[in-house]
């Protein structure tokens, strides 16, 4: 009688795939399988290669040009001169507009997400319309936000404010920090809503039930149990919104950015200089691109450091939230 030892009918743990393949499938080497797997792998590598090239190119060229003087100086009108220029007003301007934006977008985004996850019935028409609107808002081109900011905030709200306040000259009815920030807030609203919603959904329903069964109202449950738990997700949303907004130029072109300002912005109705816009100016309007190159690279590096630091933090927090979500099934 033929007896099989376990090693004959059970593939070894270490080489189960190769053994199985060799044993059950035609003995030829599967060229197409190898070829296409390789191709998709190459596509992945290629994308990573592009990413690495861009980053390395900028870091290598930009690092040598960055100095304390560079990041702490307010430049003269001719900011193409590599020796005297600086980017302090741009750093301040970009930070300022992003902070003001956050103040507006976080509350609205978080409250919308709370409505969608905690109050709304998933099947109701109004919920569907809100979700469709959020999705659409996320897809509107950034330049259209710029036009909207100009048409709505400046030409409509700003001009009417000036008329109401009887300002002799345009104070609010012109490009200003507040309008740029509000435009960006509208643009990043979906980012905050989606991130907050994701983290609200990751909270076990049992916690809400426990609180409600103790006789807490819905609002009390949300404020005391749900929101503290959702805080990391809300933070991720905020950070993603900030990092997205920090690099955007198109929406602020007509709503508040200035080509040059001799002083730092001090008031919400001031215009401001901006890192991203400055990169655009340096790379397209320099009288001598070879001389401008080092400061251009340095400016790009400053902007990248700002957005990447924020992005990495957001990705780390989000990975943790997602893991929790998956653990819940």
């Amino acid at each position: 009688m033929n007896t099989l030892t376990p090693s004959e009918y059970l593939p070894e743990k270490t080489s189960d795939t190769t053994r199985l393949t060799r044993h059950f499938r035609a003995e030829k080497f599967d060229f197409w399988s190898f070829f296409f797997s390789g191709l998709t792998g190459l596509a992945t590598l290629f994308i990573l290669g592009i990413l690495a090239t861009i980053l390395l190119n900028i870091i290598v060229n930009g690092w040598s040009a960055i100095s304390w003087h560079f990041v702490s100086t307010i430049p003269k009108k001719d900011f193409f001169d590599a020796n005297t220029t600086g980017v302090l007003p741009m750093i301040v301007g970009t930070s300022f507009r992003v902070i003001v934006m956050t103040i507006f977008v976080i509350p609205v985004g978080v409250i919308t997400a709370i409505y969608l996850t905690e109050y709304a019935a998933n099947t109701s028409i109004i919920t569907r319309i809100i979700r469709a609107a959020v999705n659409n808002l996320a897809g509107v081109p950034s330049i259209v936000f710029g036009l909207f900011g100009l048409g709505f905030f400046i030409n409509f709200i700003g001009k009417n404010m000036d008329a109401l306040l009887h300002n002799p000259t345009a104070v609010w009815g012109q490009p200003a920090l507040i309008w740029a920030s509000l435009t960006l807030a509208v643009m990043t609203l979906p980012v905050v809503i989606v991130a907050t919603e994701e983290s609200l959904k990751a909270i076990p329903p049992g916690l809400r039930e426990a609180s409600l069964a103790l006789g807490a109202t819905k609002l009390e449950t949300i404020l005391k149990i749900v929101l503290p738990q959702a805080l990391p997700g809300i933070m991720t949303g905020g950070i993603l919104a900030v990092s997205r907004a920090a690099g955007e130029v198109a929406p602020i072109l007509f709503t508040g950015v200035a080509y040059y300002m001799a002083s730092l912005p001090a008031h919400l109705s001031d215009q401001f200089m901006d890192l991203g816009y400055h990169i655009f100016v340096l790379s397209t309007q320099s009288p001598n691109i070879e001389q401008t190159r080092p400061i251009l690279y340095a400016t790009v590096l400053v902007l990248l450091m700002l957005t990447f630091a924020l992005n990495i933090v957001a990705i780390l927090i989000r990975a943790r939230v997602r893991k929790k979500l998956r653990a819940l099934g």
């Binding site: 990413l51 900028i58 130029v249």
Partner: peptide
């Protein structure tokens, strides 16, 4: 791999434009 590729979306378009130009 996944977060690495998603990191590409963190590069502002003005920086991509700059890289393409220069």
């Amino acid at each position: 791999l996944k977060p690495a590729i998603e990191l590409l979306s963190g590069i502002p378009s003005v920086v991509v434009g700059f890289f393409a130009l220069l």
